[in-house]
Amino acid sequence: MHPVLRLNANSERRLKGGHLWVYSNEVDTNASPLKNYEPGMQVVVEAANGKALGTAVMSPEQLICARLISRNPKQFLDASLMVHRLKVALSTRDLWYPHQCYRWVYGDSDGLPGVVIDRFGDVVVVQISSVAMEQRIDDLLDAINKVAKPRVIVLKNDGKLRETEGLEEYIRIVQGELEDDCAPLIENDTRFMAPVIHGQKTGWFYDHRDNRARLNTLVKDKRVLDVFSYVGGWGVQAANHGASEVHCVDASAQALDWVEQNAALNGVAEKMVCWEGDAFAALKQLRDNGEKFDVVVVDPPAFIPRRKDIKAGELAYKRINQLAMRLLNRDGIIMSASCSMHLGETRLPDMLRELGRELDRDVLIQYTGSQGADHPVVPAIPETRYLKAVSARVLPTR
């Protein structure tokens, strides 16, 4: 018999509308004191009238105190359900993307809250950010092996979300061996080695795949600048799709070493120029040097990690895009991106419009994008749609 989590009157409306989270202020704490629940515990969620709404896993000390597992009040998270949901997630990815390179599991969107799995062919990288999934890690690993039978499984369990849940951070290869701590992948006909042990997050950012594919059609014979390049996701692909010269800017010397290695994998090393340093300072230096580019990509880390950072973050986005726009030739293209969930959908286009007027340039937006199909969006949860990408042609004012 599983414990019950009783909600306040009318607090079931969001769940009935398709949401998957229960906030702590929606719980009837007289009937269901949160102190009575342990992290990771499974519960039956009930409306104030006692009607069962489904099952959930608990994080009683967090603002989001429960995450729905199933709308069937008799279906709980177990090894069998993990296998089923992994199979469903895998089948949709394989429809969209070749080479078995994609985000296999995207947390709540795939019915496995607190789990991210990236697949690099026969290498799988798992990130767990909830107590519930950490408690069931052996079942999860068994399910992964039953569904995909990977040669290598990496647990990349570091990051701020684990700290929030009170979980220790660790990185561990639990199955197989890696070559140079990297995993090979192919994206948009370009080869990479993703640094899955020492790199950021899982080692790679699949979310921009479709946006990079769009940019790849525009770079032939162009001079390209890739700002916040990391391992060259944008820049190496641009070089491989015909750019005449690509400059990559990143604060990490190690990341730029990976850029050079990935460029060499594709036979385009002679096209690459790497600049190590703070992006804002580097762009100012490039301008002082009289450099100009046909295409500039600006894909920074999240400048707005929390809602309270919106004002400062928007100023940072505007500053970096202004510096980028000043480096464009008279008829240039800017690809501006944001992974900040708290940046409004219209703000990036608005910033480019404002900058066009400030710099006396005409800005014509030709493409807006988001994350790829391997990061599916739950319509009722706007937080699952976080990525923005805007491509604009920047011309002399008419």
Rank of each mutant, 00 (worst) to 15 (best):
P349L: 07
M133V: 04
M193K: 15
R319C: 06
S91T: 10
A251E: 12
R307W: 06
S370E: 14
R361T: 02
D189P: 02
A380W: 02
D94T: 15
L20A: 14
G267K: 00
G232R: 05
Y317R: 04
D278V: 01
F120I: 06
I186E: 10
R287E: 14
T397Y: 09
G166H: 02
L395H: 11
N289T: 09
G121F: 06
R326D: 10
G54R: 02
A194F: 04
N188W: 04
R6W: 10
R214G: 00
Q200H: 14
K51P: 05
P73Q: 04
M1L: 14
M272G: 06
G235E: 03
D374R: 02
P301N: 04
R67D: 01
D181W: 08
V268C: 15
Q261W: 06
V394H: 00
D210W: 04
R319D: 15
A31Y: 02
M82W: 01
E270M: 05
Y367F: 14
E314C: 08
D250T: 05
A312E: 12
D250M: 05
E358D: 13
A47P: 07
G344I: 05
V227Q: 07
A148D: 10
A183N: 02
A66M: 05
H208A: 13
L53K: 09
S59Q: 14
G166T: 01
E38R: 12
